[in-house]
C-alpha cells in the first residue's frame, strides 16, 4: 500500500501530524493555565485521519469540520498562529475572534467551517459538492463527522440525495468509539457502513491510525468522485487520547485507563509512521527529531503571537451579521 507514497510526502504527512499533536498539547496547556476562554475538544490521537484525508485533496477542495476540528483545519492548510489567535478570541484569528474553537472557517484553504451542532455540516458538505458539480469545477467536498453524528437524521436525507445525484462528496466518519461519554455500541445499531450501503454508496473501512492507509484509500475515493462516480463513505477507526473536551478529566466511569494506555502505546499514528519509515531505512530518528523540533518551535511562536495579539474592537460586535 505504501509503495507509491514517496518519502517526501510521508515526511510531510508526519510533519502535519506532529504539528497537530503539538498544537493540541498547547491548547490543553492554555486551558489548564486559564489562558483560553471556554473549552476545546482535542484531536490528539486522531491525527492520521485528518492528515491522510487532506493529503489526498487539492487546496480548493472543500472540507467541513466538527467541534473536534483543529486537526482538520491544520491538515487542510491553516496556520498555527492565526488558529491560536482565534482560540483566544483575538482580532488576528481566522474569524476575527467571533467563532472560537468550534467555528474556525478558512475558505482560503477550502475549509467551510467547523460546526458545534453534531452533524450540522452534513448538509453543507453535500451542498458544496452539488455546487461543485453544477459549476463543473472538478472540486470534491469532504464531510468530517464522528461516530456519534450518525445518530442525526440529516445524514440519511443528504446521503440519499448525494447517491441519487452522484455528488462528489466523501463522508469521513471518524470512529473514535465514543460520543461524549457513551460508547458507540450503546447508541448505534448495526454496522456504520451498512447505513451508507443502503443508499448504494461505496464504502471503505480503514485503520485511522495508519496515515498511509488513510491517504491511499482516500485517493481512490477522491478519484472516483472526480470522475463523477458519486459519493463515498470512509470509516476511519481511531481514538481520542484526551477527554471529550479539555475539562473531561475523570473518565474512568465510561472508559478504562488501560484502553487509553493501550492506544497511546501501541496505536499512536506518529509512532506508527516514524517507526515504519525508519524500519524501511527511508529515514532515521534524527530527521524525525528535527521535524518535531521544527513544529514545536512553530507552535511556540504561534502561541506567543496569539497571546500578544489584541482583542477585537468592541464595535465589531455588530459587524458581519449581514453580508
Amino acid at each position: 500500500m505504501t509503495e507509491h507514497i514517496d518519502l517526501e510526502q510521508s515526511l510531510h504527512m508526519y510533519e502535519q501530524m506532529a504539528k497537530i499533536r503539538a498544537f493540541e498539547e498547547k491548547v490543553n496547556e492554555l486551558y489548564k493555565s486559564a489562558k483560553m476562554p471556554g473549552l476545546a475538544h482535542l484531536y490528539s490521537g486522531e491525527e492520521a485521519v485528518a492528515v491522510g484525508v487532506c493529503e489526498a485533496l487539492k487546496r480548493d477542495d472543500y472540507i467541513t469540520s466538527t467541534h473536534r476540528g483543529h486537526g482538520h483545519c491544520l491538515a487542510k492548510g491553516a496556520k498555527v498562529d492565526r488558529m491560536f489567535a482565534e482560540l483566544l478570541g483575538k482580532e488576528a484569528g481566522y474569524c476575527r475572534g467571533k467563532g472560537g474553537s468550534m467555528h474556525i472557517a478558512d475558505p482560503d484553504s477550502g475549509n467551510l467551517g467547523a460546526n458545534a451542532i453534531v452533524g450540522g455540516s452534513m448538509g453543507i458538505a453535500t451542498g458544496a459538492a452539488m455546487s461543485a458539480k453544477m459549476r463543473k469545477s472538478g472540486q470534491v467536498a469532504v464531510c468530517f463527522f464522528g461516530d456519534g453524528a450518525l445518530g442525526q437524521g440529516l445524514f440519511y436525507e443528504v446521503a440519499n440525495m448525494a447517491a441519487l445525484w452522484k455528488l462528489p462528496v466523501i463522508y469521513v466518519c471518524e470512529n473514535n468509539l465514543y460520543g461524549e461519554y457513551t460508547h458507540h455500541t450503546e447508541t448505534a445499531a448495526g454496522e456504520f457502513i451498512a447505513r451508507a450501503q443502503a443508499f448504494g454508496i461505496h464504502t471503505e473501512i480503514v485503520d485511522g491510525q495508519d496515515v498511509h492507509a488513510v491517504y491511499a484509500t482516500m485517493q481512490k475515493l477522491v478519484e472516483r468522485a472526480r470522475r463523477g462516480e458519486g459519493p463515498a463513505f470512509l470509516q476511519c477507526n481511531t481514538y481520542r487520547y484526551y477527554g471529550h473536551h479539555v475539562g473531561d478529566i475523570n473518565r474512568a466511569y465510561y472508559r478504562a485507563k488501560d484502553e487509553e494506555a493501550d492506544w497511546r502505546a501501541n496505536r499512536d499514528p506518529l509512532t506508527i509512521l516514524a517507526t515504519r519509515l525508519i524500519a524501511q531505512k527511508l529515514t532515521d530518528a534524527s530527521v524525525i527529531a528535527r521535524i518535531d523540533a521544527e513544529v514545536n518551535a512553530e507552535v511556540e511562536t504561534g502561541v506567543a503571537f496569539a497571546l500578544d495579539a489584541p482583542f477585537p474592537d468592541v464595535r465589531e460586535v455588530n459587524e458581519d451579521v449581514y453580508a
Binding site: P37, K90, G97, K98, G99, E316, V317
Partner: peptide, 16 residues
C-alpha cells in the same frame, strides 16, 4: 440580548 449571533471573544460576548 444584542441582536447578533453570540460572539466567542469574551470582549465581544460580554457586551451582548
Amino acid at each position: 440580548a444584542m441582536n447578533v449571533p453570540v460572539p466567542f471573544s469574551p470582549v465581544l460576548e460580554d457586551v451582548t
